[in-house]
Every structure is written in structure tokens, then in C-alpha cells.
């Protein structure tokens, strides 16, 4: 992502997504292209999908990128992969917090409480704990190489154990979250269907946020590279 064009493009793109997402009217049965359908049980609160879902999505993608770069570090022993891995994790943590907060605010208005231990809420909480543990581990190791290999190992272990939650959680708790499999009775009954317009805005938002994340990631990695280079200059005298 080089050049001014991308930055301007992304700015315009996200502005449009935000304005459209916030302002288009919601009507019971959309007639024109510029109307969203009302989803029963969600109403105007459904607009959060344009902002909350992309942040959660990025929190997960960043975790994946962090882990993959961790594996690359273990294979190639080059600190640049550690820079990538930790940069992804750093942004992942930020987006994870954003997703948790936006989700909790929405939950307050939709479910009546900020926190309900719904499977999705539990999952994002666990992801946040993993990010937290990852950085706690990193700050407790002095040697760069050791820090890189241990934190890579930890993110791999976390990555393989988290999917077990997907199996066990539905057995323990009822899902309240829109779109979850066991969405019966407890929460508002939601037929989670978007019409074409809503879907296009949603995808556009997902794309915009992903590009934003990649841009931030690129910046962080470049900064990390400069730091590495500076360190090596200093040690060569």
C-alpha cells in the first residue's frame, strides 16, 4: 500500500461507509435501494453490524497473522518475523478491545446487561486474555531472540486450544448473539437476514476496516524494522 492515492481512497471509502451505515433509513419493507430492512428485535441497533463485526473480524485475523509469522520465525530465525508477529498482535489487541466494548454497549441496550457470558462474548474475552498473556510473556523476557521464539510458541499453543471452546460452549450456555445456532427463547428471536443494500454496505465496511488494519500493520512493521536497524547500527558501534 504505497502512495497517497491509497490513503485518500481509504479515507473516502470509510467515510462513505460510516455515513451510509448511519444515515440510511430503516423501514419495515424496503422499497427503494436506499433503505435498510428492519430486523425484528434489533431495530436501529442493527447498525452496529457495520462497525462491531469488522473489529471482531480483525481481532481474529490479526491473531492468525501473528501466529503464522510466529511459525515463520521459528523456521527462519529472522527477527523481522517477530516484528510482524508482535505488530499484528498489538493491533489485534486494540481491535479486540474495540470489539468487546462496542459489543458490550450494544448488549446493554439489546439484552439489558453489558455482560451476559454469551458464547461470542466469552470467545472475544478469551481472545483478549490470550493477547494479554502474549504481551505479559513478551515483557518478561530480555533477549530478543528468546522473546521471539517463546511468544511464537505461546501463540501457536493458544491457537490450537481455542477451537475447543467452539465445541464446548454451546453445551454450557445459550447463545443470545444474533446469528448464533442456539438462538431460541432466551434472546430476541432474530431472523438475521440482510437485504442486498445492507449486505453491500456491510461488505464494504469489512473491506475498509481490513484495509485500515493492513495500513496500520504496514506502518508498525516499518517502524519495527527501523528499530531493528537502529539496534544493529548501535551494536556495530
Amino acid at each position: 500500500m504505497k502512495g497517497k492515492f491509497w490513503k485518500i481512497f481509504l479515507g473516502v471509502w470509510l467515510s462513505i461507509v460510516i455515513i451510509v451505515g448511519m444515515s440510511l433509513p430503516m423501514v419495515p419493507s424496503p422499497q427503494s435501494f436506499f433503505e435498510f430492512p428492519i430486523i425484528p428485535g434489533l431495530d436501529e441497533k442493527a447498525r452496529i453490524i457495520f462497525f462491531h463485526v469488522p473489529t471482531a473480524w480483525i481481532a481474529v485475523i490479526a491473531f492468525l497473522m501473528s501466529m503464522i509469522n510466529g511459525i515463520q520465525y521459528l523456521r527462519k530465525n529472522d527477527l523481522i518475523y517477530d516484528v510482524r508477529s508482535s505488530s499484528a498482535a498489538g493491533l489485534g489487541l486494540v481491535f479486540c478491545i474495540l470489539a468487546t466494548i462496542t459489543g458490550a454497549i450494544w448488549a446493554k441496550f439489546n439484552w439489558g446487561a453489558y455482560w451476559n457470558w454469551d458464547p461470542r462474548q466469552t470467545s472475544i474475552f478469551v481472545l483478549m486474555l490470550i493477547y494479554g498473556a502474549y504481551f505479559a510473556l513478551r515483557s518478561a523476557i530480555d533477549i530478543d531472540e528468546k522473546r521471539a521464539s517463546l511468544s511464537a510458541a505461546y501463540s501457536i499453543i493458544a491457537f490450537v486450544t481455542v477451537p475447543f471452546l467452539v465445541f464446548i460452549m454451546p453445551r454450557m450456555m445459550t447463545g443470545l448473539h444474533p446469528g448464533s445456532a442456539s438462538d431460541d427463547g432466551a434472546g430476541p428471536v432474530v431472523d438475521f437476514s440482510m437485504d442486498t443494500t445492507m449486505y453491500i454496505v456491510f461488505i464494504a465496511s469489512l473491506l475498509g476496516f481490513t484495509l485500515l488494519y493492513l495500513w496500520m500493520y504496514e506502518l508498525k512493521v516499518r517502524l519495527g524494522k527501523i528499530e531493528l536497524y537502529y539496534e544493529s547500527l548501535r551494536s556495530h558501534d
Binding site: 533477549i143 530478543d144 531493528l228 539496534e231 544493529s232
Partner: peptide, 12 residues
């Protein structure tokens, strides 16, 4: 040993 180098935290 061939061209062995060791760095700790980028310090050679």
C-alpha cells in the same frame, strides 16, 4: 564451523 555468527538482541 563455517562463517558462524551469533547475535543477542541484534548485538553481534
Amino acid at each position: 564451523l563455517e562463517n558462524v555468527r551469533k547475535e543477542f538482541s541484534r548485538r553481534i
